[in-house]
Nucleic acid binder design. Structure first.
Lengths: 166, 166
DNA sequence: CAAAACTTTCAATTTTTATTGAAAGTTTTA
DNA sequence: TAAAACTTTCAATAAAAATTGAAAGTTTTG
C-alpha cells in the first residue's frame, strides 16, 4: 500500500469508529488526519483533504480543541492558524476520559443519587432502590478506575498490568 | 419523590446517556424500563409506557436481545411474549463489552494492521507507521484489559481493585 | 484607519437515523 | 383448517444531526 492510500484508509476508518461512539464522523476524521500529518495543518488544508466546508472545518476543529486533544500552532510569517493533534495516545485517552466523565458520567451519577430518594417504602420501591444502587455503585467504580487508569503514566500501566492480568 | 416519578426520571436519563454513546434513545429507554420493572413486560406494556409504535418496540427489543442483555420469557396461560432485562449489572457490562469489541474494536485493529503495510520507507512513512503502531498497541491493550476486567466476577474485581488502585 | 486576511456564526439545507403503521407472516386455538 | 392472537417487516415519514455558505466579526498590515 502507498503512504497516501494508507492515510486515507486510516482517516476514513477512524471516522466510522467515531460514529459508533457518538462522535461525529467529521470530527473523528479531522482528528485522524491531524494524527498522521507530520506538519500542523491549516483550516484550508483540512477543508481540502476532507472536502468539507469552512464552517464545518472550523466548528469541528473547535470541538477537538474543547476536548483538549488538538491545539493551535502559530507559524511565524504565516497569518493563518495551524492545528496539530497531540500524538501521545495516552494523553489523548486521558483527556477524552476526563471530558466524558465530566460531561456524561457525573451527570448520570447525580441522577442515580436523586432517584434513590423514593419516599415510598413498599417492596417494589425497595427493589427499585436496590437496582439503582447496584448501577450507581458499578458506574462510580468503573468511572473511578478508568480515571485512575489513564491518569497514570505508561510506566505505571505496565507495572500494574502484570498484577492485574495475572 | 414518588416511585413512579423516580422510574420515569431514570428511564428518561438512561435514554440521554445512551444517545451520547451511540445507542439509540429508545433502545436505552426500553432497557432502563425493563431494568426497573419487577415483572417481565409485554411489547404492549413497553409501547404504552414509552408511547412508541409496535414496530419500534419490536425492533429495539430484538436489538437488546442481540446484545444479549434482554431475554424473552414465556408466561403460562399467556400467548404474548414477555421481556426481562438481566439485572446483574456485571453480566450486562460483560455482554456489552464483548459485543462492542467484536463489532467495533476488532475491525479497527484489523484496519490498523492493514495500513501499517506501507511499501514506502521514507521518513514520512516511518513516522506514520509509528503513529499507527502506538494506536494499535494502545487499542489492543485496552481492549484486552477491559475484556479481562469484565469477564471476571465481582469477587475477582474487588480482590484486584486494591492492588490496582494502590 | 481602511483594506486585506483570516475566523466565527448561524439560518437554511442536506443527510442520516429513528419511527410509524399497515400489511404480511407466524403460531395457537377451537 | 380457519379464525384469532400475536409478531415481524419495511416503505413511507418524521425527527435529529450534520453540513453548507454567505454574512458578520476580528485581527493584522501597510
Amino acid at each position: 500500500m502507498k503512504l497516501d492510500e494508507a492515510k486515507q484508509k486510516f482517516v476514513h476508518s477512524w471516522g466510522v469508529l467515531g460514529s459508533n461512539w457518538g462522535i461525529n464522523k467529521t470530527m473523528a476524521q479531522i482528528h485522524a488526519l491531524l494524527l498522521v500529518s507530520e506538519e500542523p495543518l491549516s483550516t484550508e488544508d483540512v477543508m481540502e483533504y476532507l472536502k468539507i466546508s469552512r464552517g464545518n472545518a472550523n466548528m469541528n476543529l473547535r470541538g477537538l480543541m474543547d476536548w483538549g486533544i488538538v491545539s493551535k500552532e502559530i507559524k511565524i510569517g504565516e497569518r493563518k492558524d495551524f492545528f496539530k493533534a497531540d500524538k501521545d495516545i495516552w494523553e489523548v485517552a486521558r483527556r477524552i476520559t476526563e471530558e466524558r466523565s465530566k460531561r456524561e458520567v457525573e451527570p448520570i451519577i447525580k441522577i442515580l443519587k436523586e432517584v434513590k430518594n423514593v419516599e415510598d417504602d413498599s417492596d417494589k420501591a425497595k427493589e427499585f432502590v436496590e437496582t439503582i444502587e447496584n448501577l450507581e455503585s458499578f458506574t462510580s467504580k468503573l468511572d473511578g478506575i478508568v480515571k485512575k487508569f489513564v491518569k497514570s503514566d505508561e510506566h505505571w500501566f505496565y507495572k500494574n498490568m502484570v498484577k492485574l492480568i495475572k
